[in-house]
């Protein structure tokens, strides 16, 4: 059972690499952005996994006198704000993709590069 405590790290690694693969190997720019957000989610998962304490609950102290175990609030705070920043950067990326499409009439990376070389 001890080995199961590492499963979150493996899922983190797998998601990180799936997102990275999409970012590098896919030519479609929207697909690249989706890959980037998977990559981002992998990092979120790592932080939240680290915050977990065995037998703990969410860090909301309803009764300060009771001896309860709480999970670590700090990584949760960092990720909470990071999620909203993540959606803002995704929106910025999408806006750039829309403008690229208007300028080049394609959102495939290699075609854009070919058009650039021709001109």
């Amino acid at each position: 059972m001890e080995i199961l405590g590492l499963y979150n790290y493996w899922v983190f690694g797998a998601l990180l690499m799936i997102g990275f693969f999409a970012l590098i190997a896919r030519q479609n720019l929207v697909k690249k952005l989706l890959g980037l957000s998977i990559f981002q989610s992998a990092v979120f998962l790592l932080y939240i996994s680290l915050a977990k304490v065995e037998g703990g609950t969410a860090p909301i102290i309803l009764d300060p006198t009771a001896a309860e175990i709480f999970s670590n609030p700090l990584p949760q705070v960092l990720i909470l704000t990071a999620i909203v920043v993540g959606i803002s950067t995704t929106a910025l990326g999408l806006a750039i993709v829309v403008r690229i499409r208007e300028a080049y009439d394609t959102i495939e990376d290699d075609e854009i590069r070919r058009l650039d070389r021709r001109s």
């Binding site: 999970s71 990720i79 959606i87």
Partner: peptide, 24 residues
């Protein structure tokens, strides 16, 4: 993983707003 606040944010932002922006 005990992160209720983060789960709420992810559900509202990731599944809601992000999907609408991508479709837009």
């Amino acid at each position: 993983l005990d992160a209720a606040d983060v789960a709420l944010t992810e559900a509202a932002v990731g599944a809601g707003v992000s999907t609408v922006l991508l479709l837009g």
